[in-house]
Design a protein around this nucleic acid. Structure first.
Length: 762
DNA sequence: TAATGAAGGT
């Protein structure tokens, strides 16, 4: 690997290189201090599950009082038992890193972890996919000399499997003196998780042979698993087993429901229907699974019919049924059915719980009907953080900056404290729109409000800083945390790649390997992109081959896209074309677009024409591709063909989409299109543009007009260049910021391709 | 048990 990246050194910014500190060594003993206690006493009582806030309060109380009895936990509980309880509570509240910190604290004090602690903290490791922490705990178990315990052993297997180390899990399984049904299920699950279905099925067979009867839970787990991986044929043996066994005892309603769910998720609605029709007794859940199946395959008529039929059979949908159907509907984005369900809910007098209301708001957002979402939202009473967040997420995903931040302000006025999820949504909005100042502000809010920095939130921060161009801030956030999962590495790797740090990207990739985080498809996109932008052709080819042969990751069309880009940028156009012809997947617009872009740069109209025509085959009405084709003709000065394309565009009503550029000044995002005179400060901008042009001319700059493919004379072309949206944004930036302020403009192609997003309905 | 969240190719 080392040898591979050395050959052609790419020039990279010495500035960043000096900034990039080595990744801190993993802190094996987790010495991080326990967070300082909030000044509240633990007043909450009764509930069996505590909220995160309550957990933290109890935590600080226990630490403060040296395990004196509280009014919440049983007074006679040992320190171990109390801490175990807190660890479990942190995990239930989805804050595994807090659980691990608490465990580290136990190790330092007299309250030594016992075999109730270990399975809990292993679960936390699994949630964080932190193999390193998991192994540390395994080491502790061995050193502490616990008596062998099947429960602990199963937890270890589970942890290894969730952290991607099937080898260790298998080793533990093979060496177990005594296996229970959970051990088998865990191992089967692990194999199936790695898509080793044949091995998983073989293990099912072995389990049955060894006389272990799968428990009902084990069968349901298996079915859920096959459902998750969407492998239909592989699930069959479980079905066969059930049928064979049904002579003795018929499967329970829960098992059959899981079976229906599996068939539905594997895309076989007819098999699901057959099982469903044969059921003697159907529960609410069975009906719900069946109806969700018809929603999923967009057969709304049958879905509605079944919902009505269900009531004739005296099985009544409950709030949960409706909840799951609304969620399903949102995930396929079917507005019509969503509205029908909403009406159905109102007509039939279901209790409109906050959860159901939230699901409806979310459904409308996912169907891009923000107006209805907002209506529902405004109607709701007792709004909690989830609804506010769902609504903010709706605005965030449609790039409605103003609405999202306005709502955020209103939420705080209503005394609702934002949580990690709220912040993640706002940050992703900042990333998409390049709003660095707002992003920094959100970062400050997170610190000020003491919001838990979990993996997802940290990843969002890294991503925001990287996409907004502040790579040093991204790196600072990245290095400040020790629990990094593959997504966080990917955010940093792709961030470096995106900002042009080819060599650093590759180094970081190797660092990731070293600490034992397994790269995935997305990781390789970043690495290949880095090679592409830095002209590391040979390295890129090697990584491409590595990913398949050394990591067992089948390159997807995305990776081919990177490779076409890599080869194309380097001018190896024919090789790129050859790769497209050889690829097993159907080339899409990205692939042909990459080839076309390369043909433009390297002036190969012949291949470019081919690519443009392929693009138009896929999307005949895309104005962008029509423009590109006409530009290709223009390179060859084939003006009559240029005119033809333009005429056919005009005839079919295709309009050229305006290029747009955004700039953030004092927290406000200004968007410019080409020749835009609508800005209030337009006059000043024009004056600044003239000044810029004068200065450039005096400095001897000659505009490169070869990229403007209109049949007009050179002087006019220059005018067109001068009114580009980028220049307008740049000029605006110059007049509205103090001298020497860095100016950051954003051209977001994704925004460009979705013009409707910039003109929200509201 | 069932409502809100992260990484990606021109």
């Amino acid at each position: 690997m080392e040898a591979m990246v050395t050959p052609s050194r790419t020039p990279f910014s010495p500035f960043l290189s000096s900034q990039l500190k080595p990744i801190p060594k993993p802190n094996l003993h987790l010495h991080s201090p326990i967070p300082s206690p909030p000044p509240k006493d633990a007043a909450a009582s009764s509930a069996s599950a505590f909220t995160l806030q309550q957990t933290k309060e109890i935590h600080s109380h226990i630490i403060r009082t040296q395990f004196r009895p509280t009014n919440i936990l049983p007074a006679q509980s040992s320190p171990q038992a109390q801490l175990n309880f807190l660890i479990t509570s942190y995990i239930k509240n989805n804050t595994p890193s807090a659980a691990l910190k608490l465990y580290a604290h136990m190790r330092e004090t007299a309250a030594s972890p016992d075999n109730f602690t270990v399975p809990s903290v292993l679960k936390a490791c699994a949630q964080l996919s932190s193999l390193r922490h998991g192994m540390e705990i395994h080491g502790f178990v061995i050193k502490a000399g616990f008596p062998w315990d099947v429960f602990v052993n199963n937890s270890l297997m589970q942890m290894y499997s969730d952290c991607g180390s099937l080898v260790f899990a298998t080793k533990l399984f093979d060496e177990m003196p005594d296996r229970d049904v959970v051990s088998w299920s865990t191992m089967i699950r692990s194999y199936a998780w790695c898509k080793l279905f044949d091995e998983a099925i073989e293990l099912v067979r072995e389990m049955l042979l060894s006389g272990i009867r799968p428990s009902e839970v084990a069968i349901i787990n298996m079915l859920n698993l096959f459902a998750d991986v969407g492998e239909f044929t592989k699930g069959r043996p479980v079905h066969t087993y059930l049928i064979k066994n049904s002579a003795r005892e018929s499967p329970s309603v829960n098992v059959t429901t899981a079976l229906i769910d599996m068939y539905v998720k594997c895309g076989s609605i007819s098999a699901a229907r057959r099982v469903f029709d044969r059921m003697e007794e159907k529960s609410t859940a069975s009906w719900a699974a069946m109806i969700a199946g018809f929603i999923r395959c967009r057969d709304m008529g049958t879905a509605m019919e079944l919902l009505i039929e269900m009531r004739h059979n005296h099985v009544f949908p409950n709030e949960i049924t409706m909840l799951s159907l609304v969620i399903e509907c949102g995930s396929i984005g079917n507005l019509e059915l969503g509205k029908w369900l909403h009406a159905y809910i109102l007509r039939n007098g279901f209790r409109m719980s906050v959860a159901l209301g939230t699901a409806l708001v979310d459904m409308y957002c996912k169907c891009r009907d923000l107006r209805s979402a907002r209506e529902m939202f405004d109607l709701m009473d007792g709004k909690d953080i989830a609804v506010w967040t769902a609504m903010i997420a709706g605005y965030a995903h449609t790039n409605c900056i103003k609405e999202a931040f306005d709502l955020f302000t209103q939420m705080k006025d209503a005394n609702i404290k934002p949580n990690e999820i709220t912040m993640v949504n706002l940050l992703s909005l900042c990333s998409e729109t390049g709003a660095l100042d707002r992003g920094r502000w959100i970062h400050a809010c997170i610190d000020k409000q003491g919001i838990e920095m979990d993996v997802v939130l940290t990843t969002s921060l890294v991503d925001m800083y990287a996409k907004c161009g502040d790579i040093n801030a991204a790196y600072a956030v990245f290095t400040q945390t020790t629990d990094r999962d593959v997504c966080m590495w990917n955010a940093m790797i792709n961030g470096l790649a995106m900002n042009g740090y080819g060599e650093e990207t590759i180094n970081l990739f190797m660092e990731m390997e070293k600490v034992g985080v397994r790269p995935n498809n997305v990781t390789f996109i970043g690495v290949l992109r880095a090679c592409s932008h830095s002209g590391l052709v040979e390295e890129g080819k090697q990584f491409f081959s590595f990913m398949e042969h050394d990591y067992g990751l089948v390159p997807k069309v995305e990776h081919y896209g990177c490779m076409v880009d890599l080869l194309g940028r380097a001018g190896h156009l024919d090789e790129a074309h050859e790769l497209i012809r050889r690829m097993p997947n159907e080339p899409n617009v990205i692939i042909w677009g990459a080839l076309l872009a390369a043909c433009k740069v390297h002036k190969n109209p012949k291949l470019g024409e081919l690519a443009a025509k392929e693009l138009l085959k896929i999307e005949p009405h895309n104005s962008g591709y029509n423009i590109l084709l006409s530009n290709i003709y223009a390179i060859d000065r084939r003006w009559s063909e240029v005119a033809e394309v333009r005429k056919s565009m005009k005839d079919t009503g295709i309009k050229k989409m305006p290029g747009m550029t955004a700039i953030e000044v004092n927290g406000v995002v200004h968007v410019f299109v080409m020749g835009d005179a609508s800005h209030p400060q337009s006059k000043k901008i024009q004056a600044m543009l003239s000044e810029m042009q004068e200065k450039l001319k005096r400095a001897g700059h000659v505009a490169d007009t070869s990229g403007v493919y209109l049949n007009i004379d050179e002087e006019e072309k220059e005018t067109v260049l001068n009114y580009h949206s980028e220049k307008l944004a740049m000029a605006f930036g110059l007049i509205s910021t103090p001298p020497r302020t860095p100016i950051r403009i954003v051209k977001n192609l994704r925004v460009l391709n979705k013009p409707q997003l910039l003109t929200p309905e509201l």
